[in-house]
Design a protein around this nucleic acid. Structure first.
Lengths: 343, 343
DNA sequence: ATATCTAATGCAAACGTTTGAAAAAATTTA
DNA sequence: TAAATTTTTTCAAACGTTTGCATTAGATAT
């Protein structure tokens, strides 16, 4: 009795010299059970700390009420906002979120997906890792499709699959940011690009390039520099930018982190923001409003993405045979603050 | 065959007119299976995308290889670092982490714990929510203990339970921070306190108070102000501080976020950091090194805490009957940067 | 006393997999 | 060809729970 084995329905049945069915029904308030029996059993169950074994139930009902959330990282504001959105929408429906962090690693992603399928997860929200993107492998996704487990892409996506997806319009966000810099009067706009190959990086990059072209401004390769989205990775590149013969007068960072890194370097050079150098980030992370000067940025609706993704999932599992997959694209929005407001 | 029902061992057995046992053994490379049979079955299984139902296995073996990680939030650097540490240590051992975010909510925490137990999670890492702390309810933990599911406290803890725990020495970190300010020569040190009731807030607060006392400096109530650990929550309080008749000449923030909020306000008042106002944060979040000026802070070894907690867990499940619970306290470390270096 | 009805409980199968022991089939030996 | 041996396969139980159907006990009506 003080063994560590959890109490089962059979144990209770033995104790009351009745069948497991009776115990089960008693615990579930089945009407065909005698009032006293029910009360006794329920009391005893509570006393010994009986707790239904959901594993056996999952097996029986083929329902696990668990969903997989596979993301490359949870270290950024945006990702946690998405998760919060998913959580807000799905927790009340009884779903448990199984959050898997791939660290941008293909093998880990593959392993997680396989594990989720083996565990009979009822749906998967996936933002593919950078490695997956780079490698172009997607067999691990085939098996998800084959098993007809609802798969919802978040942000990063494969075009090739027939699935629902919820993404942010990074392209137009970046475009608006650069356009804003041009309108203010900045002439030489550098870009701290995100990791190559990621949709988000490439879309923002494309927005940057297309906007320059629209205004007949040259796209100078030496003003486009790679980062890994982390603060540190912006330091050396920004220094290099500012020490060029004809340095840029504005910098568009692919996210707030690198923009803040750049901000530091600019200040170290005793240059003024926004007078000497204009600066824009991406994400509208909480801190961006309180840097000095505050950072102009592009806000992405992470929480909303999570909730939309949930909606897409619910549509799919409630949908008929001829259900059509949806692609939601939420707008991103330019948030103008001090770092770009040269008068 | 294109039904959505996953292929089972029985399906394969029917196909080969053999028993499920044979299929099971074939798939698991059991030596007593004929080479040809094995090959055929394995090929076919791959072809139809057979995937072992782990739910049934969990039921059979009473092992789920899944661990619960129950935390109040994943929006801060520290928490994600802890999770990363847990992940690094436990993923290679085949464990799946089930990350549950309570949003500081007692009921949610209770529900998650109950669900984890029902799902026969093999261990739980818990950082209790603020509400739980405030309310003082802990029945929901009793059932975890009663079921002998290993429970490892992270950072926030109940003193009352016989469990292993891994915490950071916030007290001495805070003490060192304040001592540093005093050594530099700051006379009136304010504290932006974290949410009341949380161990981390209270420990840091205590370190602050005790250090002042050690140096015979008055503890002025009006210099101690509450925040909720978020940037915004530091703005108004800091303004109020700086507009006092005799304002503080240094501010010790309970985390980097509020310190950065304070930094912004100080600059808005055209005061210089560290000349007019010294500033220290807590967490050593990546950005703190790149603010302008860079932020002196106290580093907490989040990743290490995660790995230590994993070790405690492994000790417990491998331990004998007379296993003794361990309390690990990792030191925090003052990281001196520009914001406190008045010369 | 017997048939009829109602209330309460038990039986057995199912979910998918593994595994020790038994059985069957194939092979070798005498 | 029969016996002994080895190889391969099957049987049956187990994990914990639910549920349609059958059964039992007790009560009521005839």
């Amino acid at each position: 009795m003080n063994s560590s084995r959890p109490v089962t329905i059979k144990d209770i049945a033995r104790r009351f010299r009745c069948s497991p069915s009776t115990v089960s029904r008693a615990l579930n308030d089945h009407p065909a059970i005698n009032e006293d029996t029910r009360k006794n059993i329920q009391e005893y169950a509570k006393e010994v700390g009986y707790q239904r074994n959901e594993v056996s139930l999952s097996l029986l009902n083929k329902k696990t009420a668990s969903l997989g959330v596979v993301v490359p990282t949870i270290s950024n504001y945006y990702e946690t906002a998405v998760i919060e959105g998913l959580h807000t929408a799905l927790q009340p429906l009884g779903y448990t979120l199984n959050i898997c962090v791939t660290n941008e690693n293909y093998l880990l992603e593959k392993e997680y997906l396989s594990k989720l399928l083996s565990n009979r997860t009822e749906g998967i929200f996936l933002s593919v890792s950078q490695e997956t993107y780079d490698s172009g492998y997607y067999e691990h996704l085939e098996s998800v499709i084959q098993r007809k487990t609802p798969l919802i892409f978040i942000d990063r996506e494969y075009e090739d699959f027939e699935t629902s997806r919820a993404t942010v319009d990074d392209y137009h966000g970046a475009f608006a940011a650069v356009e804003h810099l041009i309108n203010i009067g900045y002439k030489e706009i550098a870009h701290l690009k995100g990791p190559n190959g990621l949709t988000v990086s490439e879309q923002r990059f494309k927005g940057y390039v297309d906007c320059l072209k629209k205004y007949d401004m040259p796209v100078r390769d030496e003003l486009i520099i790679n980062t890994n989205f982390k603060v540190e990775s912006a330091i050396v590149p920004t220094k290099r930018l500012l020490e060029m013969a004809s340095p840029p007068d504005a910098i568009f960072g692919a996210n707030d982190q690198v923009a803040i890194g750049a901000m530091r370097v600019v200040k170290d050079k005793n240059l003024k923001i926004p007078q000497d150098v204009g600066l824009i980030g991406f994400d509208n992370s909480p801190i961006s409003a309180y840097t000095f000067p505050s950072l102009t940025t592009v806000s992405r609706p992470g929480r909303k993405i999570g909730m939309e993704a949930s909606r897409l999932f619910m549509n799919q599992i409630n949908g008929s045979e001829d259900f059509l997959h949806e692609s939601i694209v939420l707008p991103s929005e330019l948030v103008i603050r001090e770092s770009s407001l040269r008068i």
